[in-house]
């Protein structure tokens, strides 16, 4: 009797776990299907390719071109990654290979604090500090700008994604066995040569995935970016131009424009595009890692 009871419990528990895992697997598909159904109205009227590549955003004329938003989002997040990736990599190397372990212990909570700051606070900080700074920088180069630019968005974002990238990088660098460094050092390599030729090479796939994660985070970040980026619908020509990223489009307009069915549908479409691009980033970096690992 007791045995049956235990056996039954065992079965029940494993079933629950399976159900939970199932929910998590289904979730993204439910999201995509939901967004697709909501944006179906727009799909009926216009072709997908037109929507993606068209530059015209005139909702009152039923012209919905997403190109300015997509391109602006790409600008902001790639620029943010370019700014923060080297800083993160050098910091992670320093913390794991040069600093005393006490320094890492102090840094860890600092990184967590950075990660925990609400994004609206980053936005306010951006308006107060980064926007005026970028305006001055623009003037220095002889460009007249208010400071509400792609560059401001990228700068704010680059700080926001630091903790995510840095934490992953530290974890990855710590998994590399010390004996590997010892092997390289005993062949007469200096510490820097060891890091350059051995440690980074060994950690390369991990480093790429850390950057991929940062890029995905940057791409989806909404509030802080929309507060400093200017929100002007146009294809940016340079970093001192204003722009209008995808998430900002949704956040700024959702709720107000629901009375216009096409507009509502267009915003859902924007959400769908956002989701798909983030998934593409993730898949691409995953495939890249898979390929590298196979040939290593």
């Amino acid at each position: 009797m007791k045995y049956i009871n235990r056996h039954w419990k065992d079965k029940a528990n494993s079933t629950w776990m399976l159900v939970c895992t199932g929910i998590i697997i289904v979730l993204p598909f439910v999201l995509i299907i939901g967004l697709y159904l909501k944006s179906a109205l727009l799909f009926e009227k216009c072709s997908f390719i037109d929507l993606i590549f068209s530059k015209e955003w005139k909702p009152w004329e039923n012209k919905f071109g997403f190109a300015p938003f997509i391109i602006c989002s790409l600008w902001v997040s790639i620029l943010a990654l370019l700014l923060s990736a080297p800083v993160c990599l050098l910091t992670a190397i320093y913390l794991t290979h040069y600093a005393k372990s006490r320094v890492l212990k102090i840094m860890q909570p600092v990184i967590d604090i950075l990660a925990g700051i609400p994004s609206v606070i980053y936005g306010v900080w951006g308006i107060l500090v980064i926007v005026p700074f970028v305006a001055k920088l623009g003037n220095f180069f002889g460009i007249h700008t208010t400071g509400y630019t792609i560059l401001s968005g990228a700068l704010v974002l680059s700080v926001m994604i630091i903790p995510f990238i840095l934490n992953v990088l530290i974890e990855i660098l710590r998994t590399i066995p010390e004996e590997l460094s010892e092997a390289s050092l005993s062949l007469g390599a200096t510490k820097w040569e060891t890091i350059k030729y051995v440690i980074i090479k060994k950690a390369f796939t991990g480093i790429i995935s850390a950057f991929g994660l940062g890029l995905s985070r940057a791409f989806g970040e909404t509030i802080a970016v929309l507060m400093v980026v200017g929100n002007v619908v146009k294809i940016p020509q340079g970093v001192f131009d204003a722009g209008y990223p995808l998430p900002a489009l949704i956040a700024n307009n959702y709720g107000e424009m629901l009375s216009i069915p096409m507009y509502d549908s267009a915003l859902m479409m924007a959400a769908l595009i956002l989701l798909v691009i983030v998934i593409l980033f993730n898949t691409a970096s995953r495939m890249y890692i898979y390929r590298l690992e196979k040939y290593r």
């Binding site: 004996e179 010892e182 092997a183 062949l187 090479k201 060994k202």
Partner: peptide, 25 residues
Amino acid sequence: RRKMGLVSQRPYPLPMSIYGNIAYG
């Protein structure tokens, strides 16, 4: 260190080819 070759408890090949491992030093 170059005058002393080290062989450790478990082998830790450098993350490169067989050729690269020997040519590295």
